[in-house]
């Protein structure tokens, strides 16, 4: 068997463009998912039982089904219900909605971790709802929310590889295409695995740095 990694590395700039799209979709999807997840968790907290139930159902469906089935439904099924999206927007939308379901559960657990007394104290001090969220709930739950949120963000990075199956020209699709052009499948997949491995390790390290930074919010717990 012939194994020549140079064949793949010769296409460096193509790999970089695939990598750039992977990172871009990942960061955009995570940021949008984080925002949407926060909105969902907040609506579930303040919106009353009906809103809570109405949001719980889609969240459970998104968390209980494979991401692959979700993006297939969106990309191949979408045009049949009047939602024709190009691969990149479809991938970004799929990743955002999928991530939002998990992030919303993380924020929900965060909200629940803040003692009710602190919220009542804020009420007594005349804080409005948004002020309470901004100055009491968010800082108090930051440390609870951060580790699982970092974890989920790293999972989303790995999930972006599935977008190659709906022809988003991200890292996996790009490197596989190079592999078949040069007839070097094994080499291309080795490079691919190493690049993801490095990305995930870097993302994990950044997450730990963020946790260290936010630990200034750590308060004495009684």
């Amino acid at each position: 068997m012939k194994f020549d990694i140079g064949v793949i590395l010769a296409s460096g700039h193509e790999i970089l463009s695939g990598l750039a799209l992977t990172v871009l979709i990942w960061i955009a999807g995570s940021a949008l998912g984080l925002g949407l997840g926060f909105i969902v968790a907040t609506l579930r907290r303040y919106g009353g039982p009906l809103v809570n139930l109405g949001l719980a159902i889609p969240v459970e469906i998104l968390r209980g089904t494979p991401f692959l089935v979700q993006i297939f439904l969106l990309y191949f099924g979408g045009p049949f219900i009047g939602l024709s999206l190009d691969p990149i927007p479809a991938g970004l939308l799929g990743l955002t909605v999928y991530g939002a379901a998990y992030y919303s559960e993380i924020f929900r657990a965060g909200y629940q971790s803040v003692p009710e007394g602190h919220v009542e104290a804020a009420d007594c001090l005349g804080f409005g709802r948004i002020q309470t969220i901004r100055h009491v709930l968010l800082p108090e739950m930051a440390l609870i929310v951060l580790p699982p949120a970092v974890n989920m963000t790293v999972i989303l990075l790995k999930e972006t590889a599935l977008l190659s199956l709906i022809t988003v020209p991200e890292l996996t699709l790009t490197v596989q295409a190079i592999g078949s052009q040069k007839y070097a499948f094994l080499e291309s997949l080795f490079v691919l695995a190493l690049v993801y491995w490095a990305l995930v390790e870097i993302a994990g390290q950044l997450g730990r740095l963020a946790e260290g930074y936010f630990s200034r919010y750590r308060t004495a717990r009684t």
């Binding site: 068997m1 790995k158 999930e159 972006t160 590889a161 599935l162 190659s164 199956l165 996996t172 596989q176 499948f185 094994l186 997949l189 080795f190 691919l192 695995a193 993801y196 491995w197 995930v200 390790e201």
Partner: peptide, 23 residues
């Protein structure tokens, strides 16, 4: 542990499918 948790399962499966026959 780090490798199998750090590489997307899709990539692991594709790698395995090309690696085993090559071996």
């Amino acid at each position: 542990v780090s490798f199998f948790r750090g590489v997307p399962l899709l990539v692991q499966l594709l790698l395995l499918f090309n690696l085993l026959p090559a071996l």
